[in-house]
């Protein structure tokens, strides 16, 4: 409904008010999720006095960091019209690898982090190669990779958690800039930094523009001289690397890695993209929408927990949110 009214508004261009209405209409369409976040905030703050406290908000943001970083990579792939089901297990296997190297192989923590990032990138590269060059459907290729990662994680950890990391690793999550009480944890800073960087890349560089072009019309992109296969490969590689970064941030926050780390993050990241407003059919959306989607998700489930909603029911709700969000996306595309 908001859509129709804003469209009519954009037709009457000359007057100032309708121009404003059109601009506002577009804004409200792109950032509907922002209103949802505010609304949710208001509802939960009525239900619990602890909700709107600085500590809780910071807590929510901090909980969003790992998924939020994974969601950037997922968003880039979704922009090209595909998705990666292995990102969650990529988070898991890279954080376990880093933990193992630091803890049991006595590798320098920085080197361990680098190794984890490289592994994430490699996992993405394999996905990208299978999808872009061998032409295996993304769902199958990345689902297979998900299983591979899961198994590798179990091999690395022998299925038991690795805890108590060296202190250097805290820089990826739990160091507070500006004091523990009112400061900002580094994980949030990393998150914001990544969003700034990748929003810029998506909007302002050839790389990002080609992702949009491929998602908007793969054939048209090809006939404009864009190396579609190469850019698809790059998208998966970036997503894989970001998943590994998410894994490191998670490792830092939990001070522990286990085969349960990062479980279903690819799902959360996908829900975040879709409810944020990035179109699953590709070519449309902004990276920052993935962040808003992530915050919404974390907020939603944080609130649910506060309201003592049983975790099982929360699982059901999460599934419904995904289906609902995709449904809205499909209907939105249909109306065109």
């Amino acid at each position: 409904m908001a859509r129709t009214s804003s469209n009519t508004a954009s037709v009457r261009t000359s007057t100032g008010t309708s121009k404003f209405a059109a601009g506002f209409g577009k804004f409200s369409r792109d950032y509907a999720i922002l209103f949802a976040i505010v609304l949710l905030g208001i509802i939960f703050s009525f239900s619990s006095p602890h909700f709107l406290t600085f500590m809780n908000i910071r807590n929510i943001l901090q909980q969003s960091t790992a998924v939020g970083i994974v969601a950037i990579g997922q968003a880039l792939i979704v922009l090209t019209g595909q998705f990666d089901m292995s990102l969650g297990q990529n988070v898991m296997v890279t954080s376990c690898l880093a933990a193992y190297l630091m803890k049991y192989a006595n590798v320098n923590p920085w080197l361990a982090v680098l190794a984890a990032l490289a592994t994430g990138c490699l996992i993405g590269a394999i996905n990208g190669y299978l999808v872009a060059y061998v032409k295996i459907p993304p769902f199958i290729a990345t689902l297979g990779m998900q299983m591979v990662c899961m198994g590798m994680g179990k091999i690395i950890t022998n299925d038991s958690p690795i805890s108590s990391m060296p202190p250097q690793i805290a820089i990826f999550g739990t160091t507070f800039i500006g004091g523990v009480k009112y400061g900002v944890p580094t994980s949030i800073i990393i998150l914001v930094l990544m969003y700034v960087i990748f929003s810029f890349i998506a909007r302002k560089t050839k790389l990002g523009r080609n992702f949009y072009a491929i998602g908007g019309g793969q054939e048209a992109a090809y006939f404009a001289g864009i190396d579609v296969q190469k850019y698809r490969l790059i998208a998966y590689m970036i997503a894989g690397t970001l998943a590994a970064l998410g894994g490191i941030v998670l490792l830092s926050r939990l001070d522990s890695a286990a085969v349960t780390s990062g479980n279903a993050y690819e799902f959360d990241a996908m829900i975040a993209c879709v409810i944020g407003g990035i179109s699953l059919s590709g070519g449309k959306g902004k990276i920052v929408q993935a962040l808003l989607g992530t915050i919404f998700l974390t907020l939603f489930f944080n609130g649910m927990t506060m309201l003592n909603v049983h975790p099982f029911i929360q699982n059901v709700l999460k599934g419904l949110v995904l289906i609902g969000a995709v449904g809205i996306d499909v209907i939105r595309n249909k109306r065109k």
Partner: peptide, 29 residues
């Protein structure tokens, strides 16, 4: 419709799609 244009991209974006380098300065579009 399918090979010539990206339907959901703007006229300007479509026109500049092949010679995108012409609108890039210092790596920035």
């Amino acid at each position: 419709k399918v090979q010539g244009l990206i339907q959901i991209d703007t006229v300007a974006e479509n026109i500049c799609m092949v010679n995108i380098d012409k609108v890039i300065k210092h790596g920035i579009i």
